[in-house]
Each structure stands twice: as structure tokens, then as C-alpha cells.
């Protein structure tokens, strides 16, 4: 337990520093991008006079330097004022929260499904050598298919041709969200499955040939029991790491799937915020996604220690 506490004490400041550096880097890269809110305002109202534009700049604080604006923003964040989204005219949290929930539902389901299926396939490959090439091929395919392509193929087949599932979008209030999750979840899960299948197959076949398993087998333990009670717990460590990395990366990486299926979510929101020069929204979304990623990794590390206390010191 002391190890876990140590890990937390060591990681927390590290995460904080990463977040600060990230926010700085993001602020300046958005600043480096052409076009500011005032030039966007000029496009929507061509009759603005040069004097209007001057005043607008002052109003938006654009007459100040990037760093001064960053400090003002950071001060606000430290006081708990996250500001308003320029794009949606809403407090950023009100925009972010539903998007985060929607993405977590999508990614959470997909990652769990991918891990479940992948591990099952990996176990199959490890236990039945004859199935191994099939599993291998499937994993190869899953890894190689561009996800937006797969998404569109699924839409054509299941929504347009067969009409079984909605082609995308979100359910109306009071309707079940489940049908709307199936295709996007399948799209993400299929791609992610490959990693789990390969790792599980490799780890399990390595575990299954270790002496303690062989001796257990000699004592007459069933294959299924061997797998569940002996091999899987030991193979779980790398799989957990993979799970954590996936979960984090996917929160923002769902962008493509969210676009193809017209689902509102973090990926789409972040993209729009960056493209729409919405500093407050883009920064907070980016930091939130980074935080989720880092927390997922932290959780995986903690879980590893719990499963395998030997990892303790590095």
C-alpha cells in the first residue's frame, strides 16, 4: 500500500506540470493559427468600419500579447472561472459535460467490448493452435482497416441496406440510446480488438507453457481452470496497460467515428473548438482529455501493483 501512496505522490506533481506545459503549448499553437475572433466577426459583418475593428480588438483583449492573455486565462482557471465558449455562447462546462459523457459511453463500451472479444480470441488462439491462424488473420485485418472506411461500410450494410440500426446521430430524449451505440461501438471495438487479441495470445501461450502450469496440468487441472485461475491473472498486467492507453487515446481519438456517425462528443468538440478559435473551450477540452488519459494510465499502474505486488520499485 505504501508503494501505491508513493506512486500517487510521485505522479501528482508530474501530472500537474504536464498539464501546465500542455496548456501553454496549446495556447501558443492556437495563437499561431491564422485568424482571430475579430477577423471572423469581420467576415460575418462586412460593413464594420476600421474604427469598429479597433474597438472590437480591444473588447476581445486582442490588443494584448499572447502571454498576457494566457496569464489572464490561467488566473481565471485557478479561481475556478473557466469562462465561456466563443462558439456556443455557453459556459464551457455546459458544452463539455454532455460531450464528455457521450464519448465516455461510446469509448467505455467499445474498449470493454474490444478487450473482452480480443482476450477471448487470444485465449482461443492459445488453447487451440489450429484456430491460431484464423485469429491472427482477423487481428491483422482489424488492425489494417481504416476506421472511417469501416464505419461507412457498416452504415451502408446495417442501416441503409438492412435497416436494422440507425445510421448515426443521437436518440431523442426518452428513447433508448442503445441502438445508436451499436455501430459506432462496433467500429471502434473492431479496430481496437487486434491489440488485445495479439497480446492475449502471446501472453497466454507463454504463461501456459510455464512450469507451474505444466505441473498443474499434470495434476489434472482442467484447461479452462488453468486459463482462468493461473494464466490469465499473470497475463493481465500488459493487457491492463494496453486498456489504459487505449481508453485515454480514444477519448479524443473518437473524432473520426463521431464524425462518421454524426455523434456529438469530445473528439468533434475539440476539433471544432480548435478550428473555430474557441480558446476557452479548446484549452479546457484538451486539458480534460489529457487528464483522463493520465488518470487512466495511473489507474492501470495502481491496478498492476495490486495484481502483481512484485512490480513495486522501479
Amino acid at each position: 500500500m505504501a508503494g501505491a501512496l508513493n506512486l500517487l505522490l510521485w505522479r501528482m506533481p508530474q501530472m500537474a506540470i504536464t498539464l501546465v506545459l500542455l496548456s501553454l503549448a496549446a495556447w501558443f499553437s492556437i495563437g499561431l493559427m491564422p485568424g482571430d475572433p475579430v477577423s471572423l466577426a469581420m467576415i460575418s459583418d462586412p460593413r464594420l468600419t476600421p474604427a469598429d475593428i479597433e474597438r472590437l480588438r480591444a473588447l476581445h483583449g486582442l490588443d494584448q500579447s499572447l502571454i498576457a492573455r494566457y496569464l489572464a486565462w490561467a488566473g481565471g482557471v485557478l479561481r475556478g472561472e473557466f469562462g465561456y465558449s466563443r462558439l456556443f455562447a455557453q459556459p464551457v462546462w455546459r458544452v463539455l459535460w454532455p460531450a464528455l459523457l457521450s464519448t465516455l459511453a461510446l469509448v467505455g463500451t467499445a474498449v470493454l467490448l474490444a478487450a473482452g472479444l480480443g482476450i477471448a480470441l487470444g485465449a482461443l488462439a492459445a488453447l487451440r493452435p489450429r484456430a491460431a491462424p484464423v485469429v491472427d488473420g482477423l487481428a491483422l485485418l482489424a488492425q489494417a482497416v481504416p476506421s472511417f472506411w469501416l464505419g461507412i461500410l457498416l452504415i451502408i450494410l446495417f442501416a441503409v441496406r438492412l435497416g436494422w440500426l440507425p445510421a448515426g446521430g443521437a436518440p431523442d430524449a426518452g428513447h433508448s440510446a442503445l441502438p445508436f451505440l451499436v455501430l459506432p461501438v462496433a467500429t471502434i471495438a473492431f479496430g481496437q480488438m487486434a491489440g488485445y487479441a495479439r497480446h492475449a495470445a502471446a501472453a497466454l501461450s507463454a504463461e501456459l507453457s510455464r512450469p507451474h502450469i505444466t505441473s498443474a496440468r499434470a495434476r489434472g487441472a482442467g484447461e479452462r481452470r488453468l486459463l482462468w485461475h493461473h494464466a490469465l491473472p499473470n497475463a493481465a498486467v500488459p493487457l491492463l496497460t494496453l486498456l489504459a492507453l487505449d481508453a485515454g487515446a480514444l477519448v479524443s481519438g473518437a473524432l473520426v467515428t463521431e464524425t462518421v456517425f454524426a455523434r456529438p462528443g469530445m473528439g468533434k468538440l475539440l476539433y471544432d473548438a480548435v478550428m473555430g478559435n474557441d480558446y476557452n473551450l479548446a484549452l479546457l477540452a484538451l486539458l480534460l482529455v489529457a487528464l483522463v488519459t493520465m488518470l487512466a494510465t495511473l489507474l492501470a499502474d495502481l491496478a498492476q501493483r495490486w495484481i502483481d505486488p512484485r512490480i513495486g520499485e522501479r
Binding site: I156, A159, V160, A167, T259, A262
Partner: peptide
């Protein structure tokens, strides 16, 4: 996707 939702 818009076309797909119309067709579906």
C-alpha cells in the same frame, strides 16, 4: 452520413 440517415 446525412445521406445515409435519409436513406435509413
Amino acid at each position: 452520413a446525412l445521406e445515409a440517415q435519409l436513406l435509413a
